[in-house]
Structures are given as structure tokens and as C-alpha cells.
Design a protein around this nucleic acid. Structure first.
Lengths: 246, 246
DNA sequence: AAGTGGTCTAGACCACTTT
DNA sequence: AAGTGGTCTAGACCACTTC
């Protein structure tokens, strides 16, 4: 990051917008990694040759977008999936009674394959590019509840193993962060109700044709780069998908 | 609203927070109604005896909470469900192909009743208080798709009729705003998959036990006051519930 | 005591809308 | 031209954390 990228001529976008972009580039490039401290507002103001207030506005917006976290007296940190507060923001399935917990994970299958044209388009890679695919069963207190098919771009997730996925406790995205230097920041989901087929009903230990919640998720990292495509089937007998509309 | 409510002694909360509260009271009391212009930043600054920047910060937060809308050169307006942009924020069911549209509405039943203890608790009223209940079928292009049971606090929705609900085009919340002076600002939803029973399968013209998306919604107006409880069943054959996680 | 973010002020100028 | 919100600055002081 260098200060020469700031353009004060009036033709261009507001200074705080340019600074937002520069900070985001620092996040994207890995100059500042999740959990780390970024320079203080004054440091950045000097570096960019703007006032502290302008840097503040840039950081304000980035923290309202959940990319940064401010801590009074300490400094400003890169947001991370390791923070307890974030842990459950992307796990939308909550028990009808009691507190949310993390499920046990069993990897039924994991393989490396080449992207079909469909998967390539979804993950914004080229057909034939390497893809990591896995099929996962998750249980709460021993009750099979979530069945996921997951596709990841192979170039990013080299060396991902079933063992690592099963042993990791906490959000999968914290694993992505720690081991693959990839921070998931945003996801789109499509939800519908479907009937269980034979394979699924056996794995989830439910009757054939039982209603299941189908959740398709496309997750992104910085710069709208897709990092995960997921097709999930969830038993909502004692769990529900929750959402807040604002 | 009066300026004497501002307390500059350091024991109290930040000035902009106090101003946020005062503005929200103005919204709640109906002093400024949806779609209307509120006083300019300078006017409010003078009225509250603070600087314009402090008022700005208060308004900034209220507009990021979707309570106010700023328009450069024009002023700051109370957010409204009549704005095209807001129309689809609370209708989460989108067609798999094509653009979102508003469904046709048929009211199957509408009655006034007394709140059971369960409904009373949900709507934060007293058991026995009046409640408006209706049962509604909505169709897209003639295809029955959404079946809702809706409970409203009777004290607020006096005079609501089936005819009015059926004739209104656009969001139900815009009707609430115009005719009942009640602005819905936020909702919580619980989503699950269920099987269609006999009644439902007939109304929605689908096989018995077909999977349906069940969506329970509790909607609030200012000050976390519940204004609507809804139990919906949706056919997700050609529609899906969409969501963004951030 | 020094450094960080958090609040508040006063004033300048810009961009957009209305009169 | 006048009024609105939008950007930017410079400086003051507060609250919290660390040394």
C-alpha cells in the first residue's frame, strides 16, 4: 500500500472511498491478516495524507461491513471467524430449545475432481480446473441433522483432508482462515423444501419422502470471489433456520 | 420534541445517541410520518443546541437502520414501505426464473377474536385483548403458492376488512402504513420444512405430504412493539426463499 | 504517561435540488 | 440564489488499554 494512490483532484471519488479501497486491497493481499492489528487512524492519515476524520469514515464503513473490528484503546483489527461473536453468524440452524452448539462432523466422501461447466461457472473458475468436493454428515448430540455437498476451488484449498475437516472444532470458515489464508465474508442462500430420497433418508435416519430444508449457499471472499458452493439438506424436526429482516 | 431533553453532563450517553432517541420518539409519536420530510440537519442542530456534525451522526445511524432516508439537495425523509426500493425487502420468496412480482391475494377467512394466552404473549398484549385473524391464499400468475395465517393486535388494526386486503396492490405493510399509521421496521423469521396436510394440499393444489416451506414471522414496529404474527406455508417448486448472510 | 479509538465542535467547500 | 445533504479539515477533549 502506498500513499501515492490517493487522488485529490475533484474528478475522482471521495477520499474516504479511495481509502476504503486501499484498505480493502491490504486485506485482500494478506498484508493484514484476520485477527491482526491494522495501523492506527493517525498512522493511516499520515500515510495517506488526509485528516484523521477521513480515515475514520473509511474505517467506520468497513467495520459496519464486518471487515474490520474497532476496539477502543487497543486499535482496529481485521475481522476473523475465530471471534466467538462471529462463530454463529453463518450457522443459521438453531435448536428449537436451548443454545446453539457446534455439530459433530463425519466426512462420507472427499475427492478431487475437475470442474464441470456448471460448477466452474458458479465458482468463477474455468471448466476442468481442480475442485475439492466433499460430502458431509453433521449430527447434534448424535442425531444426524445436516447433510452437505460442498465444492471448493482446488487452487485455494490444496491439501485439505477429511481428517482435518473432521477434527476441526468450530466453524469451517475459521479453518479456511487459518490453513488456507482465505476469509469468507459474505454468502447468498436459496432455501426451499424438498422430499428425502432413498440415499438421504438412510443417512439421516428419517422416512423416505420426509420433508427436508434444502439450502444452497454460495460464499464469497474479498472482491466478490466465490470460495465455496454448498448444497445442504437439513432435518428441521427440532431445529429451525432463523433470519432477521431489516 | 423539545431541546430541553438534551443532557450535556458527562454522566449521560453520547449526545448523538440522545438525539437518535429523540428523533425516534418523533417517528414513534407520528410527529413525522412515513414519506414525510423531517427538519434539516441545521434546524435540528439549532433545536437541540448541538453542532450539525452531531446531528449528522445520529441521522447517519438512523438511515443505516432503515428508519430514515437521506436525499442530497432535498432533505431527510421518514422511510416508507411505499418506496419501490423497500417493496421487496420483506417478500423473500423469489421466482427461480424471472423478476419478482406481487401475488394476487384471496382472503379465505377473516375474523376478530380474543387473544389466547399464546398469541397474547407473542404479540405482547393481554390474553382476551382483541385480535384480527385472517387466513390468506396468494397466487402467482394464478398458481396458488403462499398460504398464510396472520394475527394482528386488534387495537391497532380497527376496521381492517377482507375487501381492503384483497384490493390492495403492493406490500401489505404499505397498507398498514397508510391506513393504520403503523410502520413495520423489522421482523424475525423461523424457517423449516413440513409436509402438506389434507386441508393445505387441497388449497394449494398439491399432493398430500408434499414438502412445504414453513415460515413463521414476528414483525415489529418502533420500540420493539410486535405488530404482526404470521405462519406461512409456501410451495417452493418454482420459487425459493433467498437470503444474504454478512 | 502515552497511545488508541470515541465524541464533539466550527468552519469550509462541494453536489444536488428547488425557487 | 438559497437551501439541502456530502465531504473534508483541524483541533479539542474523553474513555479505555497498556506500559
Amino acid at each position: 500500500m502506498n500513499s501515492t494512490s490517493i487522488d485529490k483532484s475533484p474528478t475522482f471519488s471521495p477520499l474516504y472511498q479511495q481509502i476504503k479501497t486501499l484498505i480493502m486491497q491490504g486485506l485482500q493481499s494478506g498484508e493484514w491478516r484476520p485477527g491482526e492489528l491494522i495501523p492506527s487512524e493517525m498512522d493511516l492519515a499520515v500515510r495517506f495524507k488526509v485528516s484523521q476524520g477521513t480515515v475514520r469514515k473509511a474505517i467506520d464503513e468497513l467495520s459496519s461491513e464486518n471487515l474490520l473490528v474497532r476496539r477502543q484503546g487497543k486499535g482496529t483489527f481485521v475481522a476473523s471467524h475465530h471471534e466467538p461473536h462471529v462463530e454463529f453468524r453463518f450457522l443459521r440452524l438453531k435448536p428449537d430449545v436451548g443454545e446453539a452448539t457446534y455439530p459433530q462432523t463425519r466426512i462420507i466422501e472427499l475427492k478431487r475432481l475437475r470442474a464441470s461447466s456448471e460448477i466452474a461457472q458458479i465458482l468463477a473458475i474455468r471448466p476442468g480446473d481442480p475442485v475439492v468436493y466433499f460430502y458431509r454428515l453433521q449430527s447434534f448430540d448424535g442425531v444426524p441433522t445436516m447433510l452437505d455437498e460442498i465444492w471448493l476451488p482446488g487452487a485455494v484449498f490444496k491439501g485439505l483432508s477429511a481428517k482435518r475437516l473432521e477434527e476441526h472444532t468450530g466453524s469451517m470458515y475459521s479453518l479456511f482462515e487459518t490453513e488456507f489464508n482465505t476469509r469468507m465474508i459474505r454468502a447468498l442462500e436459496n432455501v426451499r423444501a424438498v422430499a428425502a430420497d432413498d440415499t438421504v433418508s438412510e443417512l439421516l435416519n428419517i422416512p423416505r419422502n420426509a420433508p427436508l430444508l434444502s439450502v444452497e449457499r454460495l460464499a464469497y471472499t474479498y472482491a466478490d470471489q466465490p470460495v465455496e458452493f454448498r448444497k445442504g439438506l437439513y432435518v428441521t424436526e427440532h431445529f429451525h433456520y432463523f433470519n432477521e429482516l431489516t
